[in-house]
Design a protein around this nucleic acid. Structure first.
Lengths: 193, 193
DNA sequence: GGAGCAATCTAGTCGACGTCAAGTTCCTGT
DNA sequence: ACAGGAACTTGACGTCGACTAGATTGCTCC
């Protein structure tokens, strides 16, 4: 289509979302400004509010998309895979590092509309995917309560991804997912043979 | 002392820092406003800037204080303690949960003046304290490179603390440090006897 | 004990922001 | 074709961070 200036943008919602992801990835969530996003889309300063209500609404949309993408990424580990939970940790880290802008928003409830139904649904989706990785753990490893195993795996992956994303691990090699895999293997290296 | 209104506040810097911690703990970093802090201290709107230069300067001071407190907390684990690294993880979690406002700022370089010498010094202090926990690990557990063991421990503690602080673990019992300890023990439960 | 001086705080201003209300243009369904 | 709603514009209000110039204070040093 030609660059005709019409009154309607066409797909402003998607354009704003994309621009938001770019800005967050390069300058952080704090740099997000609805007016700036409107300028980038060549639209009046109040146009974004029509699609997202307010700043928190925009970030809520990003977070929702993030949880959906995360759930999908975790689901790519087929059931019955050996070391399934371990592999899901790797997917978790890969997701965080390949979608830094989503990840930066997903776990900051202060910035979001916590009561948004789509957000909570997407969260639930990701939560189910994560816990499914615990089910086929050997009972000896699962501990008294299956939750603790999931919690440990989640903490390890989440901590590693977070530290990596905020620049706390500058000296690392260029394949963080592989580093994470080695990390988990180390944890197991002294296990019963 | 009586509530005499003097021109000089007395200890404005400390008053602003305290108020900042309160606001962050209750409403998050995004709710911090220099003008609001000035109002709370009953001082003109530009007064805080003299002590902290700008918003990032204020948060940098908080982060610096946080790293110093963290280093001190980690140092309370005496050298030669059995399971020393494990115990330092517990201290890490305890620090994060008892100083949520500091912790919320410490790992957000986008909000800070990364080149601040006091900040980098405090960071280095905490980093040294953390790595000292790896030194007396049994060689079999330390892995090929001592760094990986430190990284795994750091990731686990950081991830657990982060998830707990952002409300991702609502169903937990009321002693998260003990939960974390149990978590780490689970990790080892299947080890060689 | 007082002059000078730096630290501290006030007051005013600027541009940018989020949000709201009201208006305008376009599209869709009937 | 036309009503009605969705998409966007325009204008305005209050708040914010940052900057500047100037007022006030209290410490230091002679």
């Amino acid at each position: 289509m030609a660059a005709t200036r019409t009154y309607h943008h066409g797909d402003l919602r998607r354009a704003i979302l994309s621009a938001t992801l770019e800005v967050i990835a390069s300058d952080g969530v704090g740099a997000i400004s609805l007016r700036d996003l409107a300028r980038r889309a060549e639209v009046s300063h109040a146009a974004p509010a029509h699609h997202f209500k307010d700043r928190a609404g925009l970030l809520t949309a990003i977070a929702t998309e993030g949880f959906e993408l995360l759930a999908a990424a975790l689901a790519t580990v087929p059931a019955g895979t050996s070391h399934r939970l371990r592999e899901m940790g790797v997917r978790y880290v890969e997701f965080a590092l390949s979608h830094p802008a989503h990840f930066a928003v997903m776990f900051q409830p202060q910035l979001l509309h916590g009561d948004d139904p789509e957000l909570t649904a997407a969260k639930e989706l990701a939560s189910r995917a994560l816990h499914s990785g615990v089910e086929d753990l050997p009972a000896a490893r699962r501990g008294p309560d299956g939750r603790r195993a999931a919690l440990a795996a989640w903490s390890l992956a989440h901590g590693f991804a977070t530290l990596r994303l905020n620049g706390s691990l500058p000296q690392l090699d260029d394949d963080p997912a592989e580093t994470f895999r080695a990390l988990v293997n180390d944890q197991r290296v002294a296990d019963v043979p």
